[in-house]
Design a binder for these strands. Structure first.
Lengths: 338, 338
DNA sequence: ATGAAAGCGCTAACAC
DNA sequence: GTGTTAGCGCTTTCAT
């Protein structure tokens, strides 16, 4: 299956390959008449640009690499939808990979994408990523690097986040305002900024209200729906049960809630509950779950725009350290008493 | 930022570029000693293959193109997780695009991916795709094409599906067995095989039980959570309310259920409900939702394996027409009476 | 077992 | 406004 090249078009139209190349790239030096003729010929001959030959010359790929912990979470797929939209509008392709929350896989993905010569790399770290030296090669080659959501604070690189600490604080304050005096916090891997920060916000709110910060009231878990059942059972076995729960994501919160309700706990009367993310699930559980509206789609758009504007020379990622996006506490019935 | 090439390695190691190329590709003609020396040098010099130069020669990209309606649904992201895993294990990259349920976008995506010279294309059609001539170019160039979930029956091309008709039938039979005599069906765009087939299964089950098939008991909708509210309100206004609902996806079913319950309808006593997909949401609503377990992750793996095995010459996609994967009715409390 | 050399298809500096 | 030409870095025949 022989591919049509610009040489074939040049021959057929009686111009040089260079003219064909220019015409197809809309180079203003070529007259409109010639351009039209060449484009028509290209179309009729079934020509398609050979991106490899082109990339080989220009040393650009118009491709962005993405590494995320998992694709199959509502938050991540929403972010990706946002990234894809912007990338597509700007003629960029995406190569999307997932680390499955494993640093080892993250390293291998980062190498693969590096070898694919992506123009830029967008990353949300796996929860066990302590060492991030695998990204050094990008920095060395001046390939722009941008983190979002799960970022590394010990690494001076542009990133887009929400203020997890503040939102953890506000969520906890809200529970306290509803009369909770014994608030249990369910958190994720403490290596992960998003979870430690929410945890810190929780702690600050407690101390500010003269409550004890009791480590036995903090449970670290995988935050899956099924982890929720285990946690609910732990809670039910406690000598003194908590009267408030701040759970670091909605899926897990929904899992907890479902078991607690089945055991006759009244929500929010016996236990008030707040989650995080504004996952669609949060609106459907009963009572609807108080949560934090995490603007995933907007974050995806923001991240892609930052990267692409940098690549186009419109702005400079290196001048940015961190962008904090707006997110709000969304109060629903699962936490409102009275 | 100068890239290291095989010429640089050749110079440093005192061999020819051809030998370097062979050594790095593990060509058996090269002695182990030389291989080791070259590989070490390559490593120490920070060499990375230039895939463009390589692709330009070999005319392969080791990249699969994907077109899906949307990324941000649980089912799709689960499928993609499965595809990504297999692709990655086999050294393939993915370029993922979404059509946003628009044929126009689907066409433009198919062109982009074609021009990116993907080795193969995996597609789940947008709901308004009637004409699929935009894929002809792939067939003409013998680029393997594989559809899944949303496929086109009028187009003779390999595809992976579940038996939607059968499952629609079984779900409806189950509702009938629970004593429902007036079953309303909520379906999606009737241009879409998955929805027409589920719809047909519903119809068959009714007729087989000597119920009338009443078109006024079939509602076509976008199947989003929020569409669920509208539908619930429509149901509440009906002169004779249905006593069973078969809803073509779980998100919408959860939306319907939430409003019905709020209006005091007892589920399953007043109305029994069944959804479709086994979305995580189905386990968390109350009562838990009867649904069809749609094995998205497995389907992703299956699809990727089929494509990659074809590309590797292990098997031949052209000999396959359709693969029907197993899926089962998952009976939960939302439809079980007494 | 290794080297020489041609060429994949495109772009851009330079020439006219 | 258009043509000439020289590579981009790799693979692969053919030769030794």
């Amino acid at each position: 299956m022989k591919e049509v090249t610009i040489y074939d078009i040049a021959r057929e139209t009686g111009v040089s390959p260079a003219t064909v190349s220019r015409a197809l790239k809309n180079n203003p030096a070529i007259s409109d008449k010639v351009k039209r003729k060449i484009k028509e010929k290209a179309e009729s001959m079934g020509y398609r640009t050979n991106t490899f030959a082109s990339n080989l010359r220009t040393k650009r790929t118009d491709t962005l690499g993405i590494i995320v912990p998992r694709l199959d979470s509502n938050f991540m797929s929403t972010v990706l939808a946002g990234i894809e939209k912007v990338a597509n509008e700007n003629g960029y392709n995406l190569i999307i990979t997932q680390s499955f929350e494993s640093q080892k896989k993250e390293v291998s993905n980062s190498v693969t994408l590096f070898n694919s010569r992506v123009d830029g790399l967008i990353v949300s770290l796996s929860s066990d990523s302590t060492d991030i030296s695998h990204f050094k090669r990008y920095i060395d080659k001046h390939i722009p690097l941008l983190f979002f959501d799960r970022v590394c604070n010990r690494f001076d690189c542009a990133n887009v986040v929400i203020d997890n600490t503040k939102l953890g604080y506000e969520t906890t304050m809200h529970l306290i305002a509803q009369g909770c005096t014994r608030i249990l916090h369910v958190t994720g891997n403490q290596n992960c900024n998003v979870y430690t920060e929410r945890h810190n916000g929780y702690k600050t709110a407690l101390l500010e209200n003269n409550f004890q910060y009791d480590p036995s009231l903090v449970i670290e878990t995988g935050l899956k729906i099924d982890d929720g059942s285990d946690i609910a059972n732990k809670i039910l076995e406690m000598v003194i049960m908590p009267d408030g729960l701040f759970i670091a994501n909605d899926a897990c919160a929904a899992g907890v809630m479902s078991v607690l309700k089945a055991k006759g706990i009244k929500i929010p009367e016996d236990i008030a509950i707040a989650g995080f993310n504004n996952d669609p699930i949060s609106r459907l559980v009963e009572p609807p779950l108080t949560t934090v509206n995490y603007p995933g789609y907007d974050m995806g758009e923001m991240v892609a725009k930052l990267m692409i504007n940098h690549l186009k020379g419109i702005s400079d990622l290196n001048m940015t350290n961190r962008i904090i996006m707006k997110a709000d506490l969304l109060i629903r019935d699962s936490s409102v008493r009275k």
